[in-house]
């Protein structure tokens, strides 16, 4: 299998195990490329990519833009805060206007779940979901799994706990799909109010005790509390949250094994994770960021190979 089974990357749910392995294999090569003195390959020099960000982003947007430029694609950027969306233009109109400028691929972040899928059904360009509301964030999940594979050799058979705001997290959902497809065991851990009611149906474990969860796992992925998505109070105070579900050095040292610490960023230091833990040698947070560029190059390259000439 040398081609992806999908034409767009709207979610991990649509990918097969072989797709993910193919992306990882390509990412291995791109990781070597981005460590060369000249970190650029000419493969996509006849491809134009539009980055449409209807929601704020720093890391993902920079990572995508760098990946596109490393592949020699032409890149145009668009952000909702400075666009006609504010004037009432619909998503399809906005995108069709951009596509009429001969764009081959669209990377989109949007606050509405399903926005990337909606778009992929209606336009001819390839679509990559860079986060759609609380639904999926496939490239983040792929780079997380890739980072685990890099540090532990394999993802299959590993135990991964995702801690924090599962209810509002697209990273959590994509991670669950991705890790399960690769044969890992997954647990979510957080306050009852932030664990979706039916998430157990996905075949994962649920815990409300951080220490118990950490003792079980090989890898802990600490999510950020997404205060911007919470219309009501889900827990009494950030201080209480960090006492019960925050990871500090004392807790980490009290475990009888060495676990890997991950975080999709941006970190709220002192809330879900303390600085000591975030900067410790068990943390692979910065490896995740580096791998993000390689993984995105792999996905863009593989989807671009399906663009008809």
């Amino acid at each position: 299998m040398n081609n992806l089974s999908v034409d767009h990357l709207t979610g991990i749910r649509d990918l097969t195990h072989e797709d993910i392995q193919l992306i990882f294999k390509m990412a291995d090569s791109f990781k070597e490329v981005i460590n060369r003195p000249i970190k650029k390959v000419p493969s996509l020099r006849d491809i134009t990519i539009a980055n449409l960000f209807f929601e704020n982003s720093t890391r993902t947007r920079l990572s995508f833009e760098l990946a596109e430029k490393r592949l020699s694609a032409d890149v145009i950027n668009f952000s909702a805060s400075s666009s006609s969306v504010k004037k009432g233009e619909t998503l399809i109109d906005t995108v069709n206007n951009i596509l009429s400028m001969k764009v081959d691929m669209v990377v989109m972040r949007h606050p509405n779940p399903g926005a990337a899928h909606f778009l992929s059904q209606r336009i001819s360009a390839k679509v990559i979901n860079a986060g759609d509301g609380t639904h999926e964030h496939p490239t983040q999940a792929l780079l997380d799994a890739y980072s685990i594979r890099e540090s532990l050799g394999d993802v299959a058979g590993k135990k991964v706990v995702i801690v924090g705001d599962i209810l509002h997290s697209r990273v959590a959902l994509s991670n669950i799909y991705c890790l399960q497809k690769l044969g890992a065991e997954v647990m979510v851990c957080g306050p009852t109010t932030l664990i979706p009611k039916y998430i157990g149906d996905l075949g994962i474990r649920i815990s409300h005790n951080l220490k118990e969860a950490l003792n079980w796992c090989d890898v802990a992925n600490m999510l950020r509390i997404q205060l911007e998505r919470q219309e009501i109070k889900y827990f009494p105070s950030l201080r209480e949250y960090s006492m019960l579900f925050g990871l500090n050095k004392q807790l980490l040292d009290s475990l009888d094994k060495r676990i890997l610490i991950m975080h999709p960023g941006p970190i709220n230091r002192g809330v879900e994770i303390t600085s000591e833990v975030a900067d410790s040698d068990q943390s692979i947070i910065l490896n995740q960021v580096e791998n993000g560029v390689a993984i995105r190059m792999a996905i863009i390259y593989l989807l671009a190979s399906k663009i008809e000439r």
């Binding site: 040398n2 081609n3 390509m26 090569s29 493969s43 996509l44 671009a304 190979s305």
Partner: peptide, 22 residues
């Protein structure tokens, strides 16, 4: 040295080429 990403037949062949190790 692997040359996959420098080939001039990207998107011109049916089969995706899998790079080897550099």
């Amino acid at each position: 040295l692997d040359i996959t990403f420098f080939r001039d037949d990207f998107r011109r062949t049916e089969k995706q080429r899998i790079p080897s190790v550099t």
